[in-house]
Amino acid sequence: MKKTINKLVLAFFLIVVSLVNAAPPQPQAAPTGSGNGGNGTGAPAPIDMYVYILGIVAIAFIVYFTKKYKSVKA
Rank of each mutant, 00 (worst) to 15 (best):
K73A: 08
A43Y: 08
F61S: 07
L8F: 08
F65P: 00
A45N: 10
A11V: 11
L54N: 15
V9K: 11
K2D: 08
V20Q: 00
Y64M: 05
A22F: 11
S71C: 01
P24M: 10
K68R: 15
N39Q: 10
N21I: 10
G38H: 04
F61P: 00
N36D: 10
A22Q: 13
T4A: 12
V20Y: 02
P27W: 01
K73F: 01
P27L: 07
K70H: 03
Y50A: 05
K3G: 05
N36S: 12
K7D: 06
P24S: 14
P24T: 07
G35V: 00
L14Q: 03
A23M: 10
K73Y: 03
D48V: 06
V51K: 15
V72G: 02
K70Y: 01
G38V: 04
N39T: 11
I62D: 01
I15D: 00
T4Y: 08
F12G: 09
D48F: 09
Q28I: 13
V72Y: 09
G38R: 03
F65D: 04
Q26C: 03
L54F: 14
V57S: 03
K73S: 08
N21F: 13
P27C: 05
G37N: 05
A45M: 11
V20N: 00
K3N: 08
G37Q: 04
P24H: 06
K3V: 11
A60I: 14
P46F: 07
V17S: 06
N39K: 08
A45S: 09
K7H: 09
V20E: 00
L19W: 04
L14I: 04
I62A: 14
L14W: 01
N39G: 15
A74Q: 15
